[in-house]
């Protein structure tokens, strides 16, 4: 009787991703990718990412020998969070959490325009000699998306998956 009752967040059943969430996805700089093997022991890393509007998916690039790749090969269900932090007020924090399936895409067949956009976004970080050859692209198609800004929450479900 003293405890708060779990409240269901508002679910939006629209075809397109809500605009506020899209802003966060486009403007964000770091994504936090959580993966887990079948034993459900989570692993979390900060990643560079690019949001592709056409395919409505997130692309990240990772080393082929990394733990996250190993986890994704065992379990494709992943979670990606992108957020904007406000150190002064929790009311101004906003972010997007995406749950969905990850697909590994070899660099040779990864869409060139998306990879170019990725390199352009992180040009200062990755430099000219970024070794794409030893890496692999991770594409995450959102199945569920949770968006929050301050105390406002809503969820979006991808009608196509």
């Amino acid at each position: 009787m003293f405890q708060a009752k779990p409240a269901r967040t508002q679910l939006r059943k629209t075809r397109s991703i809500p605009l506020e969430a899209l802003h966060v996805l486009k403007d964000g700089f770091f994504a936090y990718l959580a993966t887990a093997k079948m034993d459900c022991n989570p692993h979390l890393t900060a990643m560079f990412y690019i949001w592709d509007e056409d395919s409505r998916s997130i692309y990240m690039i990772a080393s082929k020998r990394s733990r996250k790749l190993y986890n994704i090969r065992n379990n494709t269900k992943v979670c990606v969070t992108i957020d904007e932090r406000d150190p002064f007020s929790p009311g101004r924090n906003c972010g997007v959490m995406i749950r969905g399936n990850a697909h590994l895409v070899e660099m040779e067949i990864a869409p060139q325009d998306i990879m170019l956009n990725f390199l352009e976004k992180y040009m200062d970080f990755l430099g000219v000699g970024y070794p794409l050859g030893t890496r692999i692209a991770i594409r995450v198609d959102p199945k569920y998306l949770s968006y929050w800004k301050g105390t406002n929450f809503y969820r979006w479900k991808n009608p196509d998956i």
Partner: peptide, 20 residues
């Protein structure tokens, strides 16, 4: 540092949120 990201897992599905 002021923010942490916390990952949990249930039914093989991970969940990440920022926390103070």
């Amino acid at each position: 540092e002021r923010f942490a990201y916390v990952a949990l897992c249930s039914k093989k599905q991970t969940h990440v949120t920022p926390v103070v």
